[in-house]
Design a protein around this nucleic acid. Structure first.
Lengths: 168, 168
DNA sequence: CATTGATCGTTAACATGTTAAGTTGTCAAG
DNA sequence: CTTGACAACTTAACATGTTAACGATCAATG
């Protein structure tokens, strides 16, 4: 109360808009039994072909530990294939399996149509403005941003997590 | 491959920018042992005072089932208080507990400073442009958007979830 | 070749997202 | 008063987000 932030919550605003946008696409994706993340992976692979796993993580904005599970499940149901890199056995290469390609073929046109309907309804200039502003940020956001200094915590305010660790 | 979508992935773009922005604030929040969602709740309560739970869910973009757990944990560690509505016993009213107020008082100025540093680094016009574009969408996004027709699924493509249900 | 340190992916543990179903409280029609 | 529809919240079940730590592999170095 006494301490308002006088700036609006930008991450929250981005979240709200994202939800507003994606709400129009979720029915399509879930109609095919896909999760949001699975569709992101399929779409990326459909555009770029075979990718290294870390590249998928980066492109799809999915953290490595999450992606491990996501890809395991997708491989299990035959959406994607995974194989080891020829020379560097640490890396994993991911690509669409036949069923995955098929789904991309079927979902893509629906998504395209829905974009059309969305732009038509909310106004093409509004959507274009979004793209512009987001792109500008992604460029400008490359610069280093200093971090505010954090005060020491004499009293641990909220323990929150008491992690278990192996005895040894 | 054959089926590209020729539009860029707008929800993903929003996600990337959001991550880009929030990455500068996550250290602050986690320094105080808070999760992203917990801070969203604290900030909202700090601005609006006591709120109904569904209002919190709406404001903070947290689905009701998630919020149930979030608030339970926050109540447990003394960040918030919950009480039943006087007349309508279904509703729950949420407000800051003393420890919650204290944390808001300490986090708010750091967040404010970090906004300052961020705007300075990436350019105030870029941030302002973001706010503008997002606001425009939130207004325009109110209009009804027609949904693309979904084809029947003769072959269930990906079973995905075999839900267990009570026998009966 | 053996050591050391870095990289890539995974597992572990907990918090949250998402959908369906269950619980309890409200309200109005019968 | 009772029944039934609805509203707010919770529970259940699974998928994902997040951080730390681990295992395997690779790279640089002695």
């Amino acid at each position: 109360m006494t301490q308002a932030i006088d700036r609006r919550n930008l991450p929250l605003l981005l979240l709200q808009v994202r939800e507003g946008v994606f709400s129009h696409f979720r029915p399509i994706v879930s109609h095919f039994g896909l999760t949001e993340q699975q569709w992101r992976v399929l779409r990326a692979l459909g555009e770029k072909g075979e990718m290294e796993q870390n590249q998928v993580a980066d492109t799809c904005q999915i953290l490595a530990p999450s992606l491990a599970g996501v890809l395991a499940r997708m491989e299990e149901v035959g959406l994607v294939r995974r194989r080891r890199h020829e020379t560097d056995l640490r890396r994993v290469l991911v690509s669409l399996a036949p069923k995955g390609e098929d789904i991309v073929e079927r979902v893509a046109p629906l998504v395209k149509e829905q974009y059309e309907l969305l732009e038509e309804a909310v106004g093409r200039d509004v959507i274009a403005g979004l793209y512009r502003a987001l792109d500008r940020y992604l460029e400008a956001g490359q610069v280093p941003v200093p971090s505010v200094g954090l005060p020491p915590l004499d009293d641990v305010p909220v323990p929150q997590r008491e992690r278990r660790r192996k005895a040894g």
